[in-house]
Design a protein around this nucleic acid. Structure first.
Lengths: 106, 106
DNA sequence: CAGCATCCGTTGGGATACTG
DNA sequence: CAGTATCCCAACGGATGCTG
């Protein structure tokens, strides 16, 4: 029971960065290069993106593939874990939709 | 599509407080008084709990019922919204279980 | 193009003390 | 018993500048 609390914290840790969920959402559409992610999320800052990607990588949600070429090319792809998270993120999107509805309606 | 990002942020806002998910989890077991919540989450600080409860209330996830008696008695109960969130939280618990497994196994 | 190091400002969790 | 008012501090998102 209290184990539940520990478990949910693990998940929160992984998902609760300001942009983490957004990044993951993008990656479900396919592997992306750094620049592609950045372009698809115009508001995020270069450095912030790097940080969040690093955290996601350390949490085992995605893998970074570096091609040792010039110019550098790096591709990010989801791990199995990351994919396991999809239904969760979908639910969050869905819930947010309903909830923001409600807020404006009230 | 970009609307998804907005929607997920709404959900994150609601769930991402350090203790919010935990509090909600407790309330699924039934309505609770302030002191009961506090006792069931020993680590949380008095003031922190008040803040998180207030935020959850403002987000429309739970309702506060104050009995105008002495000594004060206050009961917290989930709204329909809060209940809608249960499957999500359950998934988070479940995912965290698997994920923390993996971390220790690696 | 992608990344690291560093600094800064805001925020939110936490501590303390007081009220009804 | 429950809540309010303040203050504090760490953490995180973000800005800037430099490297290969």
């Amino acid at each position: 029971m209290d184990q539940d609390l520990e478990n949910i914290k693990v998940t929160l840790d992984v998902v609760c960065g300001k942009w983490k969920a957004v990044i993951l959402l993008k990656l479900y559409e396919g592997n992306l290069r750094f620049g592609e992610i950045k372009r698809s999320i115009p508001l995020i800052k270069h450095q912030t993106l790097i940080k969040q990607l690093k955290e996601l990588e350390q949490d085992g949600l995605l893998t970074k593939t570096t091609y040792p070429d010039v110019p550098p090319k790096v591709e990010y792809s989801l791990t199995e874990y990351g994919r396991h998270l999809k239904p969760l993120l979908d639910m969050m999107v869905e819930w947010g939709e309903v909830h923001s509805d409600q807020k404006t309606t009230s």
